[in-house]
Design a protein around this nucleic acid. Structure first.
Lengths: 109, 109
DNA sequence: TGCAGGCATGTCATTCTTGACATATAGTAT
DNA sequence: ATACTATATGTCAAGAATGACATGCCTGCA
């Protein structure tokens, strides 16, 4: 596993010595979580690239600053739908979203 | 717009002479709908490639045959999350999902 | 020091999504 | 015709996601 991602996951309470191995996370669930983390990072990167605050983005999304924070934290209460909506509002095209989703994460055996 | 997709959209009530142009669909909404359609097609293709019935897939998903039908129809009551979960269960890797999402659709001016 | 802006996190009522069920249609075989 | 299988579509109670709000933590700055 790529080191930066490991720290980010750990920071949110995921045990990473062996991502899902450690606490009963099926491979499917792991894949979903990693996709969410990738999308959330892409969201933050795009927002910052535009010099927007979370509040400013929230307004465009008709949401709230707190939810944007959760989106960027890949909180378990945010759906992939919402993350994708956020990215689209930040100008991401399906192709960009695809790139974010599929980021090579390196397979930890 | 690619012809096959146009017919599929029309079949579910979308006016396509100008996708979102015709009835107040923002560009963002159009992008979202197209991504959903792409995912749903990929889902059906994968399911059929494995020779599974909708019912068989539904069981793996712990869902119902009717919901799988709606997923494949890109029904507005199915979330992107659910579509992605379905694809993952059918063995799609993030990379595969990314490819499905970003399928070139051809820009109708 | 106090104050403001940006971000994180918990809670909660409202809204949306989901699985389950009923029912319909079409194809195939007996 | 009857029966069976696969798929499509509507409805709805239960559960999940959402937006809004409160509040706390920093950092910078007057």
């Amino acid at each position: 596993m790529e080191r930066g991602k490991q720290k980010r996951l750990e920071a949110r309470g995921w045990r990473v010595g062996s991502v899902g191995t450690f606490l009963k996370l099926s491979p499917e669930e792991v894949a979903l979580v990693e996709m969410k983390v990738n999308l959330s990072q892409s969201l933050r990167a795009r927002r910052e690239a535009r010099g927007l605050s979370q509040l400013a983005l929230a307004k465009q999304l008709r949401s709230s600053q707190s939810r944007v924070a959760k989106m960027e934290a890949a909180d378990r209460t945010v759906s992939i739908d919402l993350l994708i909506r956020g990215l689209v509002i930040l100008g991401a095209k399906p192709r960009d979203i695809a790139r974010a989703l599929g980021r090579e994460t390196g397979a930890a055996a």
